[in-house]
């Protein structure tokens, strides 16, 4: 379904600020699979999702989605296949447009937008039902600007918008990180509902070991722009947050070892 082959991305190449954000990531994700991506800050999780979504074109490697080679597609062309929710609740919705207008925009994701009426009565009715089904009591506020809603409500709506037209792939980048614990729980529950109802193939970045252990059927841990470990099947089912923490600890120790070894070599030979 999603085939990522040895993608690489370096920012500011050839300058002192050079960052090798992705150093050869390969990942193969099956249809209907729900993958959690974890890793320390700066390990390249967001960059991986951005590479798939097309925020930039990768330096090398190949990305195939649904049998289509999308490596060189611009972002707006990939949108036909991909639904996204960002970390920042302000990124996923247009604040001064109404809830109904935002949903209407999302209901044509990846389709042509012509000079046809955007919010026909039947479309409005349909959107109202979808909002009501979320159980957030927002169905009577469809004409309010979305900027007047709380972060949690906006994030829930963004999730609904991402799945309004069924995407081949759903990308969630720490979409609960900016929310208070209660709203975060609500958004996670909504995520589970939507993903399981539509059998969506999902790639979710999270910093919560709890979420990573309990959600989905696979965990990918990233480190320094590479996949450090990949846990699925029975092993994932048995996985507990503590196991993930100890894996982080292992990684940290290995990194330290690398660095101290390099330091030793440098002091001896340079």
């Amino acid at each position: 379904m999603l085939e990522i082959q040895d993608i690489r991305k370096t920012f500011f190449e050839g300058t002192p600020n050079e960052v090798q954000a992705l150093r050869g990531v390969s990942l193969s994700i099956q249809r209907g699979s729900f993958v959690c991506v974890i890793g320390t800050n700066g390990s390249g999780k967001s960059t991986l999702l951005n590479a798939v979504a097309g925020a930039f074109i990768v330096d090398s490697g190949q990305i195939e989605l649904d049998g289509t080679d999308i490596t060189h597609f611009p972002e707006h062309r990939r949108a036909k296949l991909i639904g996204r929710v960002f970390q920042d609740p302000f990124s996923g919705t247009a604040p001064s447009m109404t809830i109904a207008e935002n949903l209407a925009l999302a209901s044509r994701r990846g389709q042509s937008r012509g000079l046809t009426w955007a919010l026909t009565p039947s479309r409005r009715e349909n959107l109202r039902d979808r909002v009501a089904a979320m159980g957030l009591n927002l169905e009577d506020r469809l004409n309010n600007p979305i900027g007047t809603l709380s972060g949690g409500q906006r994030q829930s709506l963004t999730l609904l918008m991402a799945a309004l037209v069924k995407p081949s792939l759903l990308l969630l980048d720490e979409h609960t990180a900016a929310l208070d614990p209660k709203s975060a729980d609500q958004v996670i529950r909504l995520t589970q509902d939507i993903v399981s109802r539509d059998q969506l193939t999902t790639l979710m970045v999270t910093h919560s070991m709890h979420q990573a252990a309990h959600l989905g059927d696979r965990v990918v841990m990233m480190d320094k722009g590479r996949v450090a470990c990949d846990i699925s099947g029975q092993e994932k089912k048995r996985l507990r947050p503590d196991d993930l923490l100890s894996r982080f600890e292992d990684l940290r120790r290995a990194n330290q070892l690398d660095e101290s070894a390099a330091e030793m070599l440098r002091s001896q030979y340079v």
């Binding site: 919705t93 247009a94 044509r108 000079l115 046809t116 955007a118």
Partner: peptide, 28 residues
């Protein structure tokens, strides 16, 4: 009338949140 159509709505979203409308498949 133009700004009530699907096309017009997409144009309006550009000034409001261009990142979002790009992720919804609009050639900004």
């Amino acid at each position: 009338v133009f700004f009530r159509t699907n096309l017009g709505l997409a144009v309006q979203a550009i000034g409001d949140n261009s990142r979002m409308i790009r992720s919804l498949g609009v050639n900004v």
